[in-house]
Amino acid sequence: MLAASATLCTILRYVGAANFIRLGMMLWRSEAKLEIPRDTTSGKDTRSMFRSAYVVTAVNPKESVVFIAVLAQFVSPGQAVVPQLVLLGTTLLVLATVSVAVWAMAAGKMWVRFRKQGTLKLVNRLGGRSMICAGFHTAAGRRA
């Protein structure tokens, strides 16, 4: 039974590796084009988008686990817990907001570059190359 499962895992690894290589080659060969929707406004204002992103992040279970695991390390047991958690949580929220804002500004600046044909071709080639390399790396992997 164990030998059969090991063989099955090896077969699945090779199938996955071949799929990586196939997808990488498709991306490498693909036409570099960016489809821009005609209506770039979805009717949402900035507050609505921010509120939506906040709610999605707040209800994400992975975020909750990280939040609890990270904050618990910085709570001093000899002091009141709630004020410490409020301060740490607020600090985390402010840092996350700044991070999202920086990424949004960077994406806005990069938008101009990604509209150029040469940049899109480069991204396709780099992405395709990465997937092909991942395929070969997966195929070359050995069992532990």
Score class of each variant (00 low, 15 high):
68 I>F: 07
12 L>K: 04
140 A>M: 03
29 R>I: 10
34 L>P: 11
99 S>T: 15
141 G>W: 00
80 A>E: 06
118 G>F: 04
55 V>K: 11
1 M>V: 08
54 Y>K: 09
116 K>A: 15
32 A>R: 00
109 K>G: 15
68 I>Y: 12
58 A>R: 05
100 V>A: 04
68 I>L: 07
5 S>G: 03
139 A>I: 14
23 L>W: 07
96 A>D: 08
64 S>Y: 13
34 L>G: 10
91 T>D: 02
24 G>N: 07
137 H>G: 08
107 A>V: 13
72 A>P: 12
107 A>W: 05
88 L>K: 09
7 T>C: 01
13 R>I: 04
96 A>H: 06
100 V>M: 03
78 G>I: 11
92 L>I: 11
122 L>R: 02
98 V>S: 04
54 Y>H: 12
2 L>Q: 09
84 Q>N: 11
23 L>R: 06
55 V>P: 13
61 P>L: 03
22 R>L: 03
73 Q>V: 08
124 N>H: 01
72 A>V: 13
51 R>Q: 14
136 F>Y: 09
27 L>D: 04
115 R>P: 07
24 G>T: 01
102 V>T: 13
118 G>W: 09
72 A>L: 14
137 H>W: 12
49 M>A: 10
86 V>Y: 09
105 M>A: 04
90 T>P: 06
47 R>Y: 10
104 A>I: 15
114 F>A: 11
39 D>L: 04
26 M>G: 02
18 A>I: 01
39 D>W: 08
101 A>F: 15
114 F>Y: 11
49 M>Q: 09
144 A>G: 14
70 V>P: 11
116 K>Y: 14
23 L>P: 10
103 W>Q: 15
78 G>L: 03
67 F>H: 03
88 L>Y: 06
4 A>V: 03
56 V>S: 15
60 N>Y: 09
96 A>E: 05
94 V>F: 07
125 R>Q: 02
111 W>R: 12
48 S>D: 08
91 T>V: 01
31 E>V: 14
68 I>W: 10
86 V>W: 07
107 A>C: 12
118 G>C: 11
27 L>A: 14
40 T>G: 04
26 M>F: 04
12 L>A: 02
3 A>V: 06
93 L>S: 04
119 T>D: 01
27 L>T: 08
6 A>Q: 00
45 D>R: 11
72 A>I: 15
52 S>L: 15
10 T>V: 06
119 T>Q: 01
67 F>K: 07
109 K>E: 12
83 P>M: 00
11 I>W: 00
118 G>Y: 10
74 F>M: 01
126 L>T: 13
112 V>I: 05
7 T>V: 05
5 S>T: 00
32 A>G: 07
5 S>M: 00
61 P>D: 06
51 R>C: 15
27 L>Q: 05
34 L>S: 10
41 T>W: 08
109 K>S: 11
80 A>F: 11
30 S>F: 02
104 A>G: 15
89 G>T: 05
137 H>T: 12
47 R>P: 14
116 K>C: 15
88 L>G: 07
26 M>W: 03
16 G>E: 01
56 V>K: 13
82 V>W: 05
46 T>Q: 10
137 H>Y: 08
1 M>P: 13
10 T>K: 05
83 P>N: 05
25 M>T: 00
58 A>L: 03
131 M>V: 01
